[in-house]
Every structure is written in C-alpha cells, then in structure tokens.
C-alpha cells in the first residue's frame, strides 16, 4: 500500500524554497495558527472548499448540487458560500466550470508525487536544486515525507523540508536520514508572545531546532510582521537564539510580511488580521543584525 498525503499544491520552478530550481510540495495541515499566515488554506488538515467570487459567473450549478445548504443564491445573480455549512463533499467544485469553487487538498500517493516532481530532474541537477516539502507543517505527515524523500534520495534528488518544527522530535527524526536541508521558521524569541500570535509556545520548537542543528544544515526563515516582531530588540533576541547553532545556518531569509493571506482567507470565510508591512529600511537594518549569525542574509 502506497503512502499517501493530503497535498494542496505542487509548485514547479520554485526559486525561494531552498537552493537552485526546486519543486515545492505543499502539504495541508498545520500545528500553528500564525495570525499573519499567508497560506491560511494550508492550516486545516482536511479537504476544504474555497470560493473566489471574482470567478463566479452566477450559473447556479453549485446551488443545484449542494445538499448541505452551503451554497445560496445571492444578489445580482451571484451566490453566497456559507463555509460553516460546507461538508467538503466537493460536489460544487465538480460542477463549477469557472473555477470559483475550488477544492483545496488532494490525497496523493508518494508515487504520484514522485512522478510529477521527477519530470524536472534535469533542472534540479543543473541548478543545484531539488524538491522541498512545505506546508502547512509537512512534518505532521512525517511518514509520507520520509518515504517520498527516501525515494527521491534514491533518484539522486536532494530534498529540503520547510518546517516550523512544532512537532514531536520523532517526526523530525523520521525525515532526518533522507532530507539534506531544513528550512526552519523562527518567528519570535519570547515564548508568551509566540503563543499569543501562533497559538503555541516556542519551547518545543527551539528544542527541536538545537537538536536538528547537530545533524543538518539549516536555512532560517523569519517572517517580519509589522507590529509583531519588527523591532531591533526582537530581532536581537532572535539573533541570540540563533547564535548557538550558527555553524549549521547556511542562510537566513527575512520574509517581509504581505497581505496575500487576507484574500485567501476570505475564500473560506476566515477573517485574517491585517498587519503593517515593514519598510525597506527596516528590513535592511534587520538584515545587518543577522550578519553576525550568517553571512548570507536575504530579504525576500
């Protein structure tokens, strides 16, 4: 029986999820609830329906097939999607030719994923790229990630795992033999603040980080969120956290907050908070702070 996972996107020609040209496999389900999440559709570990009202042509086909009362006739020929009524049966997406109702999340086997990512093998080889498993939190489906990474390793394709590390160490350990690189999100230093904004403290995350650093090279990814962690003090605290594992850190990516998550959240009636966007000057200044940890600091 082939290993399966719930995947919501496979992005080819990915240039920002590790070195070289990569394919990023996005797994659905996350163990954090970051208030600024830019992929809120990745949080729920079930298949979901997303509604893009801009694509709706008001044909009413979804209303005809919905047996849960989630699709209602709205004003001016459009319709209303009641996400809380939705049982995720996907019937509406089957009949929505315009793609306004979209299924988010598909069960895929490791073989299916492999078949798709292997078609870009030449690009990985010539660019020093590979495959990245991202999420959500990919290590919530650690058995699948480990199996897929193992098969990729056998094909000579390097694997990276993009994780927030808010998982038991066992999950990390499963993927360790097969992943060559870990991209680890570090969001803030203070545990209480971390809990406030992400729904979980960072104790386990940091423990995992320090332990992982003994085994694998790391890219550290720090989302910089206006009003949350965009201060020199906060960044200095993160620097302190990272200094003990600096030998393993090969790159630091400072990810400037953007509000794409707000629109995405709207598609399944999830209201996402809007934060301020840090200025270029701030980002440049933070970038300098991290030079003490790693020579390669990129602002993305």
């Amino acid at each position: 029986m082939s290993m399966e996972a719930l995947i919501y996107n496979i992005q080819h020609f990915s240039l920002h999820d590790g070195p070289g040209i990569r394919t990023t496999v996005f797994l659905k389900g996350c163990s954090l609830r970051c208030a600024w999440c830019h992929n809120p559709e990745s949080i729920d570990n079930r298949i979901q329906m997303l509604y893009d009202e801009k694509k709706c042509i008001g044909c009413g086909a979804c209303i005809q097939v919905c047996s849960n009362g989630a699709q209602l006739a709205g004003p001016e020929g459009l319709h209303l999607f009641c996400a809380d009524q939705c049982m995720h049966c996907t019937e509406c997406a089957q009949v929505c030719y315009a793609g306004a109702m979209e299924q988010c999340g598909y069960i895929k086997s490791a073989e299916q994923v492999l078949e798709e990512v292997l078609r870009d093998k030449t690009l990985y080889q010539t660019s020093g790229g590979g495959v990245t498993f991202s999420g959500g939190e990919p290590l919530l489906q650690a058995d699948f990630v480990a199996e897929a990474a193992k098969q990729l390793q056998a094909e000579g394709i390097p694997t990276a795992i993009d994780t927030a590390l808010n998982v038991p160490w066992d999950s990390v350990e499963k993927a360790l033999p097969y992943a060559e690189l870990f991209l680890v999100d570090v969001k803030m230093a203070d545990c209480q603040k971390h809990k406030k904004y992400t729904g979980a403290g960072n104790d386990r995350i940091l423990q995992n980080l320090y332990r992982l650093a003994e085994y694998k090279p790391l890219y550290i990814r720090i989302p910089v969120i206006g009003g949350v962690n965009d201060t020199e003090e906060e960044m200095a605290n993160i620097v302190k956290l990272l200094l003990p594992v600096r030998a393993s850190i090969k790159q630091i990516n400072l990810l400037t907050y953007h509000d794409f998550g707000i629109e995405k959240g709207r598609r399944f009636a999830k209201e996402m908070q809007r934060f301020a966007v840090p200025t270029d000057a701030q980002m440049q200044s933070f970038s300098k702070q991290f030079q003490s940890v790693c020579e390669s600091v990129l602002i993305d």
């Binding site: 240039l15 070289g20 040209i21 030449t122 690009l123 010539t126």
Partner: peptide
C-alpha cells in the same frame, strides 16, 4: 522569467538553457 539576483540567477538561466536543449 522573473528577475533574479546573485548566483541563483546564473544557475537558473544555465539550467533553463540546458533544460531547453535537452528537451
């Protein structure tokens, strides 16, 4: 293609050229 910086840009274009020829 998007604008890219640093070594990635070079690797990317080399890869795309090689990929184009090999395909």
């Amino acid at each position: 293609l998007p604008v890219t910086k640093g070594q990635l840009g070079r690797d990317l274009f080399v890869s795309v050229i090689r990929g184009f020829v090999q395909n």
